[in-house]
Design a protein around this nucleic acid. Sequence first.
DNA 1: CATGATCATCGATATTATCGATTTAAAATG
DNA 2: CATTTTAAATCGATAATATCGATGATCATG
Lengths: 298, 298
Amino acid sequence: MIMRPDLDAIRALDAVVRHGGFAQAAAALHRVQSTVSYQVGKLEAQLGVPLLDRTHYRVQLTPAGEALLAEGRRLLGQADHMAWMAQQFSDGWEPRLTVILDGILPLEASLRALKTLAEEKVPTRIQLKVEYLGGVQFRFEKDNADIMLVKDYVGRSDLDAHPLPEVECVLCVSPRHPLADRVRVTLRELHEHVELSVQDSSDRGDDEHMFGGDRVFYLDGFIAKKQALLMDLGFGWMPRYLVDRELQVGALTELRYAGGSRYSFMPQLVHRVTAPLGRTGRRLAELLVGGSTPIRQQ
Amino acid sequence: MIMRPDLDAIRALDAVVRHGGFAQAAAALHRVQSTVSYQVGKLEAQLGVPLLDRTHYRVQLTPAGEALLAEGRRLLGQADHMAWMAQQFSDGWEPRLTVILDGILPLEASLRALKTLAEEKVPTRIQLKVEYLGGVQFRFEKDNADIMLVKDYVGRSDLDAHPLPEVECVLCVSPRHPLADRVRVTLRELHEHVELSVQDSSDRGDDEHMFGGDRVFYLDGFIAKKQALLMDLGFGWMPRYLVDRELQVGALTELRYAGGSRYSFMPQLVHRVTAPLGRTGRRLAELLVGGSTPIRQQ
DNA sequence: CATGATCATCGATATTATCGATTTAAAATG
DNA sequence: CATTTTAAATCGATAATATCGATGATCATG
C-alpha cells in the first residue's frame, strides 16, 4: 500500500506550498496546472495519506502533510547534495584520498592542513594513517595510497617528491642517566646502555641512525619513546619539536655524543607520477609544501 | 547537465552492487537485466559521472560510485523513513501534539512520560508549554492545544478530564521571618507582611488561595518563588514536592496559619471531546493517569 | 576453442507524465 | 442573491520514458 515517495512528486508539493497554489507552482515548475495536480495526487497515493486539505477555497497542508513535507524537503536537500557531490567529482575532486604519514613528522601541521580542507568543504573522504620508518612506504604500496609524507625518500622514477619543512633530531637522555654528565661520549660507551627506538611498523629493517648496541627497547611511537626517555629507560633520538620544552626545562638533556648529537632531514611529500593527484590531493600538497613547487596536474 | 538523481535508479545501482551483478539485481527487483542496465545508465547520465567500472569482466564501483552509492543509500533510507512516517500517520499516530502544563505540577512526571514516548519512537512532534493559573486554559484555547494538565478544572461539556496524582501545597516562610515563630497566625497578621505569589501567565485574575493583602510580590514561576522564600522576601504557598527537602533541613518552615497551612488538589488531564486524541495523546494520558480510567478513542 | 556468463544495445510495447480543455466548487463582486 | 472570478480536480489525447525480449560483444573457464 504505502510505497517510497517520488522526488518529483515531493518537488511538486513543495512548490504548491511554497508558491501558494497549483497554478503558481505550475508556473515555477514550467508545467501546467493539471500536471502539478496529478503529481500531488500521486504523492498522496504513494504515502496513503491526504497531504492537502481541499475543503477550503485555497488548499492548505494537513498536519500530516506538514510533517511529511518537512521530511520531504530534507530528502530533496539530500538529493541535491548527492548531485553536488557528483558535480565535484566530475570537476576533478577525488572521492577518496589516502595519506600515509611518518610518525616522526609533526602531526599538527598535517592536521591543520586537513582542517583547512574541511573548511573548504572538499567532498573528499580523507584517510590519514601514521606509520614508522619502512612501514610508511610499505603501507603506501599496500593500500595504494595517494600521498605519503616520509622522512627518507627512496628515489624512484614513478614517484614524484616535494620537500617539506626541515625537521631536526636530537639525541636525548634523562639528566639522571649516567651518560648525561659525560662529554664526548663514544660509540663504545653508548653500547653499554639501553637505546630507545621506535619500532618499524612494517617489521622490516632498522633506522640508519641507530647505534647497533645489544640492548634496544622498541617503542610504538614517539610519544611512548618520550615517556621512556623521561622515565630514564635509556637514550635515543627524538625530533626536536617534540622535546623542545623538555630540553629547556631540563627534563631531558642533549647527549654529548662524539659523533654528533644532532642531525636534520628534509621530509618529502611523495605521490605517484602514474596516478596523478586530484584537486584535493594537490590542494593538500599546496598547503603542506607551500606554493613554491607546483604539483603536477593530471 | 547534472540533475537530481532518481530514487529508482539509485535502487538499481544498489541492487547491482548488493547482489553482485545486473542479472542478480534484475531478479531481486523483479525486472529484466536490460532494465537494470538502463536504470544504472540513467543514473550515470543524471549525475554526469561513471559509477561502474566496465573495463573488467564483472563491473565494480568506481571511487566516485562508491561515495555516491553511500550517499544514495542514505537517501533511500530517508525516503523509507518518510514512507514509514506516512504509515504511522494513517495508523492513527498524530503528527503533532501540543501539551499545556500548569507550572505547579511536577515537571518531572511529564518529562518522564515524554521520554518514554521518545523511546517508543512515536512519529509525533510533541510540544510542551508551561503556564500558570489562568494562563493554562488561556493558552490551551489560543494554541488549540490537545492536552492540558491543570490544577483547577473548569468543568465544560466539550472537555473531558482525568484525575492525576494529588498534589499538596504548604504555606511556607523562611525561619528568619517574624511570622516563623508565631502560632495560630491570623489573616490580619498575614496582611502586615509581603505575600509571594506566582503571576498568572495570562494576566487575568488571581489564585483563589491568595490572601488579599496590600503587598504582593509576583514571581514568574515556582523556582523563582522558592528562591524568594529562601531569601526571606515574604511568605507564600508552595507545592510540597518542591520544598520537602527545605522543610526537612529547616531552610523553610511551615507557617502556622489559623486558617490552615496545607491544602491538596487533584490535577486533571483535560482534552477535547470534539477533537479526540490520537494514539500518541492517548499513550501520554495512559502514562500520566495510569491505566485506571480509559481515555476516549476517536 | 568451445561454452557459459556478463553486460550493452536495440526495436517493440507497456506504462506513465504532460498537455489542453472542461467541470466543479468556493470566494469575491456588484 | 446572481454573477463573475479564481482555484483545483477530471478527462481524453499525446508525448515521454520504462520495461521487455532478443541480439551481440566481451571475457572467463575448462
